[in-house]
Design a protein around this nucleic acid. Sequence first.
DNA 1: ACAAAAGTGTTGTTTTTACACCCATGC
DNA 2: GCATGGGTGTAAAAACAACACTTTTGT
Lengths: 234, 234
Amino acid sequence: MQRYTGQKRILVAVDCIIFGFDGWNLKLLLVQRAIEPEKDKFSLMGGFIQPSESPDDAANRVLEYRTGLKNVYMDQFHVFGKPERDPVERTLSIAYYALIDIHQYEKQINDEFHAEWFLLNDLPELIFDHAEMVKLAKKQLMYKAALHPILFQLLPEKFTIPQLQSLYEGVFQTQFDDRNFSRKLLSTGLLVKQPEKDKQSSKKGAFYYKLDQSQYKENFESFLNLVPNPDKFF
Amino acid sequence: MQRYTGQKRILVAVDCIIFGFDGWNLKLLLVQRAIEPEKDKFSLMGGFIQPSESPDDAANRVLEYRTGLKNVYMDQFHVFGKPERDPVERTLSIAYYALIDIHQYEKQINDEFHAEWFLLNDLPELIFDHAEMVKLAKKQLMYKAALHPILFQLLPEKFTIPQLQSLYEGVFQTQFDDRNFSRKLLSTGLLVKQPEKDKQSSKKGAFYYKLDQSQYKENFESFLNLVPNPDKFF
DNA sequence: ACAAAAGTGTTGTTTTTACACCCATGC
DNA sequence: GCATGGGTGTAAAAACAACACTTTTGT
């Protein structure tokens, strides 16, 4: 096989920032690192790109291996590549964030890999530049979520509007007016009301909704503006 | 030096999609490829990442080498990494788009490297997956320019509002209402009116403006909405 | 005087916000 | 019957779009 000569090849990894939502709080899935250096510290889910894989393939493989989940929503958002970012050897990392419904996640795999959910606001110390990755991932998630309805990916098939609102409030770290939020949301035409209510969080109960999949796909690329004064956040 | 064992290292390049604006049209700077395969076809400005460089460093080096320009506005926007994208050898490419004031560009370097400006709507055939890169770069540029005042980077220090408008119209491939556009723009407080007028494009002449640098930095991260109905474009 | 482009004014419409109030239910 | 969220109504404010009209100046 032909090659480009005189060029140095570099190790390339993918790292996944896995966001989950349990109905109240936003969380991140981390693993305890099994090898030196920085053994036992926590790290993002990562792995090296294999010769036959595209970066997207690699990210999906890593995610499936760690969580058992396929067909998860993921966005490639940045390459981290300072020469000294990994002390062992120069490694580039292509970072993805993934959005998963936390209840789909199978607990047993969790134990096998020493994986754990952490509150997004209370993370342990992370290896290398992973804290920086998480910071940028949060920002990118806010950015995209302010304009496109991606946060639905974090919820189960049926969910209530108050649940969705607390998810948005978690992502944007603010409170929204509940009345306006639910009206805006319903006016998007993305939701299909279900006959049942969720009675857990209030006496009156909140109706469940499902996503209208065809509307969702159609509107995905449009701006939505569910978030008031998005300026504030950037 | 310690190394990760059993992992394959990959060649990593950067490619720059260089946008320029000459006062009327949006253009792209391309070079004629000097080596086989696909010799003499046109390609983006690219180069391999060196051991001591971050991807950003590499992109800046490539840009300076090809155009002589430093401190240019650039955004890393995507990694292209299909295993077969470069037929010579597997190569990942980290893609950047750059925005330069076309008049700052020094013509002589142009000739040396067989670099040429092409109208964005009339590009020659490109090597590998470079056409796909350009397509995504255009989309990303629209996306960012709809929300942040980055297009100023394509203009000289002093410019007129009609010039800026035709730049926006080039990027979004539509016509905007001139009255509303100029009013919106002035209301941002980003512009400082200059005493002189540009008389080239009309009898009346249009006042020159400069960017208020401190306002610019402050508002850079806010949403601006100079573009009506941004939904339409995504 | 006229043409051609710059740019200001005006107005009706839509979107957004803020907040009052009613609703359903478990205790 | 009352406390607790859930959800609808309404009205003021702000942003936006459409378009008429004035201004400037080279020919």
